[in-house]
Amino acid sequence: MINCNASTEWCQLMWQDPFTRCHMQIDPEPFVSACISNLCQSPAVDGLKCHLMEAYARACHQQNNITVEDWRSTAGCAAGPEAMCRDKFCSDHEFCGVSYDGKAHCLCRALLASDYRSKDKFGEPAVCSHTSASVTMYCCLLLEKGIDYTRLHLNDESCKGDIDDKTHMVSFNFDRDHTCGAIIKANSSKITYKNVIMTPNISSVVTRYSNVQMDFSCHFDQPDPEGLAIKIKDSPVIKHLTSGEWDYTLTLTAYTDPGRTQPIESSTGVLLNEKIWVEIKAYGLEGNTLSIVTESCWATDQLSSNGSIRYDLITAGCPNPADSTVDIEGNGQGTSNYFSFNMFRFLGKDSEIFLHCRVDLCVQQADSCIQVCDQAARRRRSLPTIDAKGDPSIVTMAWA
């Protein structure tokens, strides 16, 4: 409990003997004011009282070689660790004092420590990301429990704490590349990175250090695939077309498997970078006479096939050489063909994506309709003779 009146009265002892011999050289007012301000905010257990008065006595001696005799008796301060503390740097949340081992250490000020003491903690909770974890603790709080931070390590004994020389806080870290012995577990709902901050195993029959084993783990919810899934709006897409004398139906159907047995429906979720297969099939054509050739397929950010953004998957009957995920099979061999690619979205865009495919009819003359692509260069080596009457057909599929 803080008694500001008693603290004020005690600080004003610096206006009295034996401090009066120093008054002519150093004004005590700043020291008295600082003493009152500190003690009215900090409990007496902080150990500040004698340190604040020591500051005035030391200033007198250092600046004017005046020794304030017997000030400890006047102030009721026993001989303390000041001599040992003169070369010791303590951070803002610490003060120098004698610890349990009889030596001078940087101890925690009460304003910092009270919160952590009540919760039996040494610092803030671990900071976790999906690739790393770190935890930071106050050395002065560890010291109160007789714990030497230099002896602590993670599961991997080579992973020790890093000390900040200014704040006297020690940090333990591990990440995906340097796990420091962390055990990684995963189930359908959670991912756990489990590690432990501990002291070395003791082989002796006696020890003068506390045995420590502190949990240092991170838990993450597994991402919900359904929440991240892309939905294809309409599959199959069915379009009735007339090209010259030919009336036929063109379908565009997406599948999740290369055998094209599992069609994608509007309720089916597809993840980014997941491979899908798209089959283009014509009904109502004479298979011995005509073939369909997928001349090109491209994606836009608008329903119009001339959107403001365009990304090519198939060009000139062959996969876009800039996209290694694209493959096409059976192009020009009959009334159906299919291609595959890994699902994507436009960078920085949350709008729908529209896939457009241009399909030509080809009158079969030997193998003239078959598209032959150089897989190394991913370009067509020879162009077939396209001899269908009418305009090429464009069929469009959308996903979001």
Rank of each mutant, 00 (worst) to 15 (best):
D257R: 03
P321D: 06
N187A: 00
G227K: 04
I232L: 08
A388D: 08
G161Y: 00
V359P: 08
M53N: 07
C96P: 10
W15K: 13
E144N: 00
F339E: 08
E94L: 00
T251H: 01
K275R: 13
V206R: 15
C4A: 13
F31G: 09
M169W: 01
F341N: 02
D323Q: 05
F95I: 13
T179Y: 03
W399S: 07
D177G: 09
N211W: 05
R21C: 04
P384W: 00
T289W: 01
L228R: 06
L383N: 13
A34E: 11
H178P: 02
L272I: 05
T251Y: 07
N38L: 05
E82M: 06
H178W: 01
N195S: 10
F172I: 02
T315D: 02
G348C: 04
H219E: 14
V237P: 05
D323N: 06
Q365V: 06
R58C: 05
R358L: 15
D27E: 09
V326M: 01
D27A: 12
F31L: 11
C369K: 14
N5L: 07
F95V: 15
A78N: 11
G181C: 09
F19D: 08
N64W: 05
L48W: 06
C60D: 06
R378A: 15
G97W: 11
H23E: 09
A79E: 12
E144R: 00
T315C: 00
D350V: 07
W399A: 03
S324K: 01
R380Y: 11
I238H: 02
L313P: 03
R176E: 11
G307I: 05
K160G: 12
G181A: 12
P225L: 01
R208K: 14
V98R: 06
C362T: 02
S158R: 04
H130Q: 14
V359N: 09
T74M: 08
L347Q: 15
T179V: 10
S91Q: 03
L271P: 07
F89P: 02
R151A: 09
A377Q: 10
C357T: 12
I147T: 03
H61G: 06
T335H: 13
I370H: 15
H178K: 12
L52Y: 07
V205I: 14
Q262C: 03
D374M: 01
R381W: 00
K166A: 10
F344Q: 03
H51I: 13
A110I: 00
L303D: 09
L272T: 09
K103V: 06
S114F: 10
S37C: 01
R109L: 15
L303F: 10
T261M: 07
R208A: 15
S7C: 09
S132N: 14
R379T: 14
Q262A: 08
W10T: 13
H93C: 03
V45K: 12
Q375E: 12
Q62K: 10
M214Y: 12
S189Y: 15
T294D: 09
E329Y: 13
W71M: 12
Y56Q: 04
I197V: 15
L152D: 00
A282D: 13
T150S: 13
T289S: 10
C85G: 08
F122W: 15
T131R: 04
A400D: 08
W10L: 12
Q365Y: 14
R58D: 06
C139V: 11
F216D: 04
M84W: 08
G47D: 13
R381D: 07
T300W: 07
Y138R: 10
E286A: 08
S351F: 01
M53E: 08
